[in-house]
């Protein structure tokens, strides 16, 4: 019975048709965000969509339910099977995807890491589209907070997970800036805590900071979930006047806090532009108008001339955008 049904199953699947090649001549792009329901990636998707409307490429997006390390794997395999030309992915893990991405690339699929890179595994993707030069992000945040607290007093960092590669790059640069730049000599980093990008944990950690360090003057939270949770905590505790907060957040998430003065300024880049650039670059490489190699340049409407950097890393913009009361209503993402 066991064998019989197995054989039957085999026969059935074999008699059904084999995979057809992808029919369209248009460049087909799929974007796989970290997880579904994450508003950050909605605007990134919008960038892809707008670019593909102009360039006439086929665009789809498919996202797993959770941002767990392995959740994207079946999607990569399925998209490879669909024969898409380009897989753009915001990886949930810097190393768990290596095998499956290699397989996709062996079949001729172009693989881009978008918004986050496969740190330490660059040879498993073809290029990376990142928002800004990440080496400048940390010092930029320190400068912004410093300007709010007159460059003086205890400060703390509320990050995502202890293993988040981007956040760790920024935090290292923050530490470096605080140590080496005499301008920040009177700013003292008392704690770096991790909220795991979970609203509840971030809230608890932020509350613990307030309770543990009564002289705290400022908090930097370089993650969208953390900065929103910290803002909510400051607002609840009524301590926005004594403790300044800044970080990386989306305008929609931070709007009420900027308007009521809990947060005077925070920073981010445009995820929309990442999607836009990724689509333009994908089409240009696929059509052979440019080569995917460091030094190549591409003109993207709205972004100007973009140059491929070392390690095939491409940045969408030079500097972070700072959002405050005056400009926040111009942004909707």
């Amino acid at each position: 019975m066991l064998k019989k049904s197995l054989m039957l199953g085999l026969a059935l699947s074999l008699t059904l048709s084999t995979a057809a090649a992808f029919a369209a001549d248009k460049v087909s792009i799929v974007y796989i965000p970290k997880n579904t329901g994450n508003p950050y990636f909605d605007s990134l998707v919008k960038g892809f969509q707008d670019a593909c409307a102009k360039l006439a490429c086929d665009f789809t997006t498919a996202a797993p339910a959770t941002a767990e390390a392995t959740s994207q794997i079946p999607f990569i395999t399925a998209q490879t099977q669909r024969g898409v030309n380009v897989i753009a992915i915001s990886p949930n893990s810097p190393d768990a995807l290596n095998q499956v991405l290699d397989r996709a690339r062996q079949k001729g699929t172009l693989v881009f890491a978008v918004n986050g890179d496969l740190v330490g595994n660059f040879d498993h993707r073809d290029a990376a589209i990142l928002p800004v030069d990440f080496t400048k992000t940390g010092p930029g945040q320190v400068e912004l907070l410093g300007s709010m607290i007159n460059y003086e007093g205890d400060i703390a960092i509320l990050s995502a997970t202890t293993d988040a590669p981007d956040q760790n790059t920024w935090i290292a640069a923050m530490n470096d800036a605080l140590k080496t730049n005499p301008k920040y000599a009177k700013m003292k980093l008392v704690a770096t805590v991790y909220g795991d990008d979970d609203p509840q944990k971030s809230t608890t950690e932020a509350e613990a900071l307030l309770s543990k360090y009564p002289n705290l003057k400022g908090i930097i939270s370089p993650t969208t979930v953390g900065v929103a949770a910290a803002a909510q905590v400051l607002q609840s505790a009524g301590k926005a006047a004594t403790i300044k907060l800044t970080g990386l957040g989306t305008p929609n998430q931070m709007r009420p806090f900027v308007k009521d003065g809990t947060v005077s300024a925070f920073q981010l880049w445009s995820p929309y532009n990442e999607g836009l650039l990724a689509a333009y670059y994908a089409v240009a490489v696929k059509n052979g108008t440019i080569k995917n190699e460091p030094g190549a340049t591409l003109d993207v409407p709205g972004l100007g001339k973009v140059t491929v950097g070392p390690d095939h890393i491409i940045n969408t913009q030079a500097e972070l955008t700072t959002f405050d009361k005056n400009n926040i209503d111009k942004f909707n993402f």
Partner: peptide, 14 residues
């Protein structure tokens, strides 16, 4: 649902 589904090695891989 999809013309790409019925491929034995793809199903095995998945």
């Amino acid at each position: 649902l999809s013309p790409f589904f019925a491929n034995f090695s793809f199903i095995l891989e998945s």
